[in-house]
Each structure stands twice: as C-alpha cells, then as structure tokens.
Amino acid sequence: MIGNDIIDLNETKRTTNWKRPGFLKKLFTETEQDIIANSDDPFTTVWQLWSMKESAYKVFIQAGGKPFYNPRRLACNLKAAHGEVLIESMLLKTDTIINANYIFSVAKKRETTAKNGIFKLDGLDIKKQSDVLKQQFLKYISVENNLNVHALAIRKSETGVPKLFNKNTKINVAFSLSHHGKYASYSILN
C-alpha cells in the first residue's frame, strides 16, 4: 500500500487562507499547532503537514479503514529525515519533497522505496487533469513491464480505491495518484 499527495503552492495560496481564524485548530492537533507556531516558515509547514495527512489517509482507506473527514485524527510527527503519521493504530512513514512550486508527500507502512513521477499539467480543467495523469501513469507501467498501454485500465474498487487492470485482469501493483493546481504525480511501491 502507498499513498501520495501533491500540493501546488500557487494554487493553495489562491484558494486557501490558512490564517483564517479557527482554520488551523480544525486541521491540526495541539502538537502540530505547536510545530507550526515554532516554524520559521509556517506556510510551508502547514502544507507539509497537510500533505502528510492526505497521503497517510489514502493508505488507511486502501487498508480497508472506514472513511472519515476529521483531519485531527491523523497525528503527524516530524523527524529528521522522515515524518510519521498515526491513524488509529496504524503508523505510517512519510517522505516529503518541498520546493518553490509544490510539496509532495508519500506514505507507506514500511521504509521501502517507491518510484515517483511528478510532472506539470497546464491549462486543463480538473477532469482532464485526472485523465492526463492516468495516461501518464499507464504509459510508465506499460514501458516498465512491457505491456500494451491500450490493454491497461484503472478502475475504482467499491471503496473508491483505484486498481490497475491488464485486459480485465487485476495487476497487483501498489500505486497512488494525486493532482492539484498545475502539478500531478504518481507513486508506485517497489
């Protein structure tokens, strides 16, 4: 199982005012609010923690967890090289990439490696973005595994988890897709 999340920093500046009174309290635990308050760059810390929660939640759902919204039920911990997110009794390891354009997090149960593809999407509406991301991901899978891209498809399970199929046969590849603003990403567990 693997979960990822990408946040386009310009998009988030445009759409979300994290300084809105009451906003941080609803999103973050007391410990996380302290981390943000003591950060040199609270904006980046807010969205780093948020991307960790989003990526971890995807693993929780893949594992059969019951859907919920409450972001405070995902508790983040920042360590030197990695992060951790605790959801109920499930502890996930996260890795985050931060640059001037986006924040990208990947969550896994163990510190195994993953293949991540990150690319820019331009001027597309949200549904087209999702289609382009799926095509990019399928193209990667087809090249890596020597499969016909036209035989590959993504279908959602009953719980809304995307699964990969080759000629109607499910392929056991753990992956996660995320897009936001102008950026898209796929992550595949090695």
Partner: peptide, 15 residues
C-alpha cells in the same frame, strides 16, 4: 468526490 471540493477547503465550508 462529487463536488470536487478541495479537502482543505472543506474546513472553510465547516467554518
């Protein structure tokens, strides 16, 4: 899933 509200903006809806 249906309204495609960004998950962070759902906090705005709640507020």
């Amino acid at each position: 899933n249906d309204l495609k509200i960004n998950s962070a903006n759902l906090i705005d809806v709640i507020l």
